[in-house]
Structure formats: structure tokens, C-alpha cells
Design a binder for these strands. Structure first.
Lengths: 248, 248
DNA sequence: ACAGTAAAATGATGCAGCTCAATGTAGTGC
DNA sequence: GCACTACATTGAGCTGCATCATTTTACTGT
């Protein structure tokens, strides 16, 4: 079934054991805002979450839906995106296990401001507003940690703004590849493989360009031996050169 | 001294009474994250802030400086901006009295990620990390309110990203004028005057374009009788038409 | 009233990147 | 192995906006 594939990407398969109590606890502990909790409290918190399996490409929630759950990714990759009236999509972020997403009225947002869907098969923990409020009350530090996470996200958004306003596409794509490699990269021989399916369209939606332009830039990078790439995958072969491009 | 001016903008003068205890309390109460406090607590909180007067164009803190104070604007207007290596500036926000700015290590940021300067003469309240931590401990709601404010700011940043990635300049400038009018606009005859000095450069830095292009667009809007504008001021004469432009 | 300065307007030119269109190719189901 | 589909590539042409250069105008200090 797979002998015909030429992709170097691993295709992780979601299995039931990926959402066992132990895995859940491990991932919960990973989420920055639960890091201060001891094993005991973590167990209590765990009980308030419900686990869901979501199939690749299934929508988890939609932009403008009523905000009802805070979610934590346990397994797989989640994609957050904005739709624009013009039909162009903006990919806000690709999440890895341990990251939180979604929001609650309690946190000042009545509706989701983006759409979330399963970029690969996923296991997700969800908690409702009432239960999360309870956690916040008993562990006030968590609110502070949440502020910290959001501050980082705001910073990242402003970096994107800066790039969009002042860097040409090549630079933006180079910077994006670097940050994806940092987040999803795994060493493989002398290369750094981005362990995540990533189409030209995905890349274009992250960097605010078109699939055609993204494709041209990627071809160019490959010609320069900076990357190797194929259908939905990239591997960085010359990290320094890529950094060069992203800085000049 | 002013008889020669043709600007319709009022030029508010900062006077000592703008930072009296009463004004300070009023503005503190305005800041969303102190809204839940009663008069008594507000008085206590007020004592922990120090007031500063800042002259127009003076820098309040610089990008990359160590984060040391959380600040609240009491009088005047503050400008937040990013500098880019290429020399282009990105104007993140123009603040009005009652808004907070700056950050603290306690909130997950060790350094300021933008530069803040007095867009007009200002009165500003500042609080250090230790004192703010104390406030957070005695009033846990404040952390939640802070999360809400930052969620709004993140949303706004993502809107900007969407605009930069998918709207042409005219539309971006129209949208920016609308939001400035919403925030700083005052009714004057049949017009909506943006009560804030605003140069073509400011506008260009908000919308990610150049002064020349901003100027051309503004001239065009004026030709269309959508706005009246002059040196550092704008007044909206046809709000509906401006909305039209921002939506199409 | 005059001179000096910062801001704005306007024109001419070039090109990065979008658009439209056609072709090539990896992965999958049968 | 073949056919189908979704993804990727590549080309040609056009245009929105940046860039560079110059002139005009509003405001301030003296």
C-alpha cells in the first residue's frame, strides 16, 4: 500500500492509545499554562477534559461560531485559518501537540475568530467554560501563564505584519520555512525534514502570496540546493543559506 | 499665536490638573482590567502608580529595552511602533486615554517588543512588576480582564494581517480611517473629525504603504468628496462612501 | 512680513508579484 | 497496470504600487 510512495514524510497513524490517560496527562503537562501544576492537580484537571478524535480535514470549529470550548491538541496537527470575503485564506498557525486553541466567553471572546480544522488525524481535549473557570479559581497562576502565551502569540502576529509590510516574498517564505523547521523539523541524515504535510497553497496562505508564486520560490530554493521539496513536503539541506535569505 | 492656523484640529494642552488624583482615578477606572474594582480598591491601586508627564515626540520606552513598567495613558495620545531593519516603520497602534501599554516579565515578556512615544503631550501612570504582582494577587479578576484585552488586540493584529495579505491600499486606508474615526472621531457640523494629528507618514506606517501612495489615495478620496483633509488632519464627510470603499 | 522647514502633492518610470492559462507529475483506487 | 485526481510547475502578460525626483503648500519663529 505504501511501497509506491516517494515522500520522505512519516505518516503517523492515530491510534486509541494516543489518547490514554497517560498521554493526556503528558500533553496537559506540556501546555505552558498547566506547567506549574503538580501531578495530583493535573489528575484533577484531566478529569474535566473530554477527548475527541478528529479525522484529517474535518472542521473542529468555524469562524463566527459561538465560543464554547477551550481545546488542547494531544496528537496530530491542527490548522487555524481565516477566510476573507475575497476568497483568499489566511493560515494563522499550524499547531503541534501541547498547544491550546479555541476560546471562551470567559476570556473575553464570544465567538471564535478563526476556523480550526484537523490538518492530520488528531486527538483533542476539550473543556467548557464552567469547568475552566473552576480551574482558574483554584489555580490563579494559570491565568498569568495564559497571559504569557497570548503575549507570545501577539508578538508573532506583529512579526507577520512586519514581514507582510516590508519583506519581499522570498524573504517571507524563507522565514516561514525556518519557523516551521524549528517547530516541526526532525534531523534526517544531514537534512532537516519538516515532519508535516505542507502544500504550496498552505505555504502561500501563511505568507500572504499565491500558490504560483510560492511554487516558483520553492523551485528557486531547490535550484540553489537550499531545500529539497516535493508534493506536500520540504526538507532543508542548507540551513545557513536559508537564514541568509530570510535576513537580507 | 493661533490665528494663522487653518487646521480644524483642537490642540489640547496638557496641564497639571490633568494628572490630579481625580483624573487619575477616573482613567484607572476606565482601564478595562480595573473596571471590576470598587472605589476603595481603586484608591489603593492608584497609590501604586507614579505619574509622568511626557512631551510630544519623546520616547517612553524603546523596542528591546528591558520590560520594567506597565503603563496607563491618562491624557494625550501614545504611539506604538516597530522599527524594521529595512528602515520602514510599522505603526502598531495609537492609544487613547484609558488604554494600557508596556509590559512586564511577570506577564511573559522580558523585553518591550515595540517602541512607545508620545504622539502628543501626555500624562502617563506607571507601575512596576512587584507592585502589579501584588495587585494581581489581591484581585484575581484583573488577570482575566487582561486576557480579554489582549485577546482583542490579537484579533485586531490578525485583522491587519488579513488586510495586508488580501486588500489593495485604497481599501486598507479606508478601513484605517474608519477605525480611527471610530476611536478618535468627534462630530463637527455634518462631518466626523479625527481629533488627532495624523500625517501621511503615520497613515502609511499603519497601512503598510508609502507616504506617496497614502497621499495619492487621500487626494483621491478628497476629490470624491469622501473626506476633507489637510496637513496632519482628516475629517470624514461621507461615511457611507468610505464604508463602501472599505468593503469592496 | 519674511524666511525657513516639515509636510504634502504630483509626475515619470520600473518591476515584483498577481492573473490567466497550459502542461507535467505524484499518489490513489480499481 | 491504467485511469483519475489533486497538486505542482512553468510561461507570458499586465498592473498596482514602490521608487526617485521635483514642486507646492502649511505652519512657525523671528
Amino acid at each position: 500500500m505504501t511501497s509506491r510512495r516517494t515522500t520522505p514524510l512519516a505518516q503517523p497513524v492515530l491510534q486509541s492509545h494516543h489518547c490514554t490517560i497517560d498521554t493526556r496527562l503528558e500533553k496537559l503537562g506540556l501546555v505552558t499554562f498547566f506547567q506549574t501544576l503538580d501531578r495530583q492537580s493535573l489528575h484533577g484537571v484531566n478529569g474535566l477534559f473530554r477527548a475527541h478524535h478528529v479525522r484529517q480535514n474535518d472542521v473542529i470549529y468555524r469562524q463566527h461560531d459561538k465560543a464554547a470550548y477551550l481545546r488542547i491538541l494531544v496528537f496530530g496537527a491542527v490548522c487555524l485559518l481565516h477566510h476573507t470575503e475575497s476568497g483568499k485564506d489566511i493560515l494563522i498557525d499550524l499547531l503541534q501537540p501541547g498547544e491550546y486553541f479555541g476560546t471562551l466567553p470567559l476570556l473575553g471572546e464570544d465567538h471564535y475568530s478563526e476556523t480550526a480544522y484537523a490538518h492530520t488525524d488528531c486527538c483533542i481535549l476539550a473543556i467548557n467554560g464552567t469547568d475552566f473557570e473552576q480551574i482558574l479559581q483554584s489555580h490563579p497562576d494559570i491565568a498569568i501563564a495564559l497571559i504569557g502565551i497570548n503575549a507570545q502569540r501577539l508578538k508573532k502576529a506583529r512579526d507577520t505584519i512586519r514581514h507582510l509590510a516590508s519583506s519581499p516574498v522570498e524573504k517571507r517564505i524563507a522565514a516561514t520555512l525556518l519557523s516551521l523547521a524549528h517547530k516541526f523539523g526532525i534531523k534526517k541524515d544531514e537534512e532537516l525534514l519538516v515532519q508535516l504535510p505542507l502544500s504550496r497553497k498552505n505555504l502561500a496562505d501563511i505568507t500572504g502570496t499565491t500558490t504560483e508564486t510560492a511554487s516558483r520560490v520553492m523551485s528557486h530554493f531547490q535550484d540553489e540546493r537550499i531545500i529539497k521539496t516535493g508534493r506536500k513536503w520540504v526538507s532543508i539541506t542548507n540551513l545557513d543559506a536559508l537564514k541568509q535569505v530570510s535576513e537580507h
